[in-house]
Design a protein around this nucleic acid. Sequence first.
DNA 1: CGCCAGGTCGGTC
DNA 2: GACCGACATGGC
Length: 309
Amino acid sequence: MSDQEGPRVERFNTDAKEGYILRPEGPCDLESTLCGGQAFRWKKMDGCYQGVVLGKQLRLSQEGDSVFLEGAESEHDAIFIAKYLALDLDQGAIERELESTDDVMRRAVAASSGLRTLRQEPWETLIAFIISANNGVPNISRVMENLAEMYGDRAEGPFGSFSKFPSPDQLVDAGHEGVWACKAGFRTKGICEAARGVLEGYVDLESIASMDYPEAKQELLMLHGIGEKVADCILLFSMGKYEAFPVDVWIERIVRHLYFDDGKVSHKQIRRWAEAAFGNLAGFANQFLFNYGRKFIAKQLRKESVAGS
DNA sequence: CGCCAGGTCGGTC
DNA sequence: GACCGACATGGC
């Protein structure tokens, strides 16, 4: 673990397309990873996913266990994307360890094998999850896209023109009115405050990312619009804090149903339980449970939570 | 019209 | 500490 071996990346060039082949360590499923609610700017095209990472337009596709990357300019970028996708992590080992914890988790992992936990850019992730509060995934994506198109740099990419996600100073320039116009609603205040904080330096995301989990979380909780759940999402999806266990309505429903026999459980109790049950793999467990809940028993749980209690 | 969405905030007790 | 209503917006 200490001498981090980089992800395996090779150049490829065929009649159909050229770019890089990324070879994941263990199973990988792009669909659930990119479209499962941790990232919000990936667009599904026919047979591939188009997105913007580090201000560069990219396409990803999958055949079997190989991931194809098109549009990257250099091997350096390809390696960055492989790390963004967490392909260097031994997913097989993570899944095996989680499967051994209990029967529910075994089923959840089996249902979404290859679901990776991304390493996204902290700034964009910070804004995305402020927007996520009491919001739906399609709407979160729409607001993120509005911000990019209205206030981000426009550029020519290998697949046409696109918009980068706005920098902190670009959002500060947009002001409350501009952000409001992007349909951010009551999250506008939090977005603008975060932008100002990062711009002026009293919110240092790099520094926060280097702190341990409890300390980093405490820092994020200072910001308006960031509570326990949003902080945990930022820490998990962009700062490598894998002990974070974000508790939202879906996690609450599925954990209460499958682990607490439909009894009353507070969010704090759930967080403590997850820490004890899954330790430093809690974040991965969270991803599998979230996906499991939404994919297979969403309707069933919704009915019960209305009819019950 | 109603309720819900990867919640948080500012009041209460 | 815990509990509760308000808060924009869009989908069903």
